[in-house]
Amino acid sequence: MDSQWRFNGTALRTLMAQERAQLMAKERAQIFSLYEQGPRKRLFVDIGDENKDNDEFISDRFGFLREKPQPRDSALGTKQRRTESRRLRKWVKMLNNYSKYYGSKKFQQRCFKGIPSEVRGKVWKLMLSVDIKKAQNPGTFEVLKEQARLHCDQVHEIDTAVHWTFRNHLIFRERYGMKQRALFDVLVAYAMYNPEVGYGQGLSHIAALLLMWLSEEDAFWALVQLMENFGGAEFCASSLNHGAQTSEDDWAKK
């Protein structure tokens, strides 16, 4: 009798696991399909106070939607543009002889002052050796995306994170739009690339920031390099193992 109960219990658990796997597979397919179809009715994320109209917000030079600013002193704006122009010329000079400047005190100081948007993507790719990593793994990104379509068990969490990431930025505002799909693809690919970490809290904002300046595949390999070479993977894995919820600020301090 006891053996029969044990058999029935094992069979029931197996059946429940199979049903759960089928439900997850169905949901995974549905979510992938939504991103592939794109924004059918041009759905936009609400970015502001419910008491304010969307026309009360404008985009700043980085693409973030903000309340309409008050008039500024034109002299301050002119001074800022001149400063940024000088800074850009200095960065172009450094990039022409990158191996000489990288790691130097001057390079670090200029990083702290801010990398001009015109060269930011190029600088990030050089600093993270993105092209080298990508050349060492040809075709890997596309393979990981296909594997995620069949096996990723964090699709629901990733889709939810994508929806809430930089809701006030122009390129991520359109639900299931091009950049939201790119962010989704980067995150599911990374979940397959590093299953020990998978998707962790805050990764969507890091990946989205990379996507503002890099292509989809370059952003993926930049994320890989950040996680592998700057302690990100170990920090996230440790936090998950201890059941802790980590913030982006905590990760950045690492």
Results as ranks from 00 to 15, higher is better:
residue 89 R to M: 11
residue 116 P to V: 06
residue 100 K to C: 06
residue 88 L to G: 01
residue 13 R to W: 07
residue 219 A to E: 02
residue 250 D to T: 10
residue 181 R to A: 10
residue 217 E to P: 06
residue 186 V to F: 09
residue 252 A to L: 14
residue 35 Y to E: 04
residue 4 Q to R: 15
residue 131 D to C: 08
residue 13 R to F: 05
residue 240 L to Q: 15
residue 4 Q to M: 11
residue 17 A to C: 10
residue 63 G to Y: 09
residue 85 S to H: 14
residue 148 A to F: 03
residue 116 P to C: 07
residue 6 R to G: 05
residue 182 A to M: 11
residue 225 Q to N: 13
residue 191 A to W: 00
residue 37 Q to F: 08
residue 125 K to G: 02
residue 183 L to S: 07
residue 199 Y to H: 07
residue 183 L to G: 04
residue 76 L to C: 12
residue 190 Y to W: 03
residue 225 Q to E: 14
residue 243 G to R: 03
residue 73 D to I: 03
residue 90 K to V: 07
residue 173 R to G: 05
residue 250 D to G: 04
residue 164 W to T: 11
residue 214 L to W: 08
residue 38 G to C: 13
residue 134 K to P: 02
residue 86 R to H: 15
residue 66 R to Y: 08
residue 141 F to T: 01
residue 152 C to F: 01
residue 175 R to S: 09
residue 246 T to K: 04
residue 39 P to G: 10
residue 174 E to M: 10
residue 173 R to Y: 05
residue 24 M to A: 14
residue 33 S to G: 06
residue 184 F to Q: 04
residue 121 G to H: 08
residue 249 D to Y: 13
residue 137 N to Y: 02
residue 195 P to F: 03
residue 52 K to E: 15
residue 212 M to H: 06
residue 19 E to S: 08
residue 225 Q to D: 09
residue 224 V to P: 00
residue 90 K to G: 05
residue 138 P to D: 03
residue 36 E to H: 12
residue 30 Q to R: 13
residue 121 G to V: 07
residue 252 A to Y: 10
residue 207 A to D: 08
residue 41 K to A: 13
residue 252 A to P: 01
residue 132 I to A: 13
residue 45 V to H: 10
residue 139 G to L: 12
residue 218 D to T: 02
residue 1 M to D: 14
residue 25 A to R: 12
residue 88 L to F: 08
residue 204 S to W: 04
residue 204 S to P: 01
residue 132 I to G: 06
residue 150 L to Y: 01
residue 115 I to H: 07
residue 144 L to D: 00
residue 201 Q to M: 06
residue 110 R to N: 14
residue 89 R to C: 05
residue 69 P to T: 08
residue 198 G to M: 00
residue 98 Y to C: 07
residue 78 T to H: 07
residue 157 E to G: 04
residue 33 S to F: 04
residue 61 R to P: 04
residue 75 A to P: 00
residue 28 R to G: 03
residue 40 R to P: 04
residue 88 L to A: 07
residue 220 F to R: 00
residue 70 Q to G: 05
residue 172 F to W: 10
residue 154 Q to W: 03
residue 116 P to W: 05
residue 63 G to P: 12
residue 227 M to V: 02
residue 96 N to C: 12
residue 233 A to K: 07
residue 37 Q to H: 15
residue 196 E to I: 04
residue 225 Q to H: 08
residue 172 F to M: 13
residue 45 V to L: 14
residue 80 Q to L: 15
residue 240 L to A: 07
residue 187 L to G: 02
residue 7 F to D: 10
residue 254 K to W: 05
residue 212 M to Q: 15
residue 43 L to N: 08
residue 236 C to R: 00
residue 103 G to C: 10
residue 124 W to G: 01
residue 65 L to I: 12
residue 222 A to H: 01
residue 182 A to Y: 06
residue 71 P to H: 12
residue 175 R to L: 13
residue 108 Q to S: 12
residue 21 A to H: 15
residue 42 R to F: 13
residue 155 V to A: 02
residue 148 A to M: 01
residue 98 Y to H: 09
residue 227 M to R: 00
residue 67 E to I: 12
residue 1 M to F: 09
residue 146 E to V: 05
residue 62 F to T: 15
residue 46 D to I: 10
residue 183 L to Y: 07
residue 164 W to H: 13
residue 86 R to V: 11
residue 243 G to C: 05
residue 102 Y to T: 11
residue 150 L to R: 06
residue 229 N to A: 10
residue 124 W to C: 00
residue 117 S to H: 11
residue 136 Q to S: 11
residue 93 K to C: 10
residue 120 R to V: 04
residue 218 D to S: 14
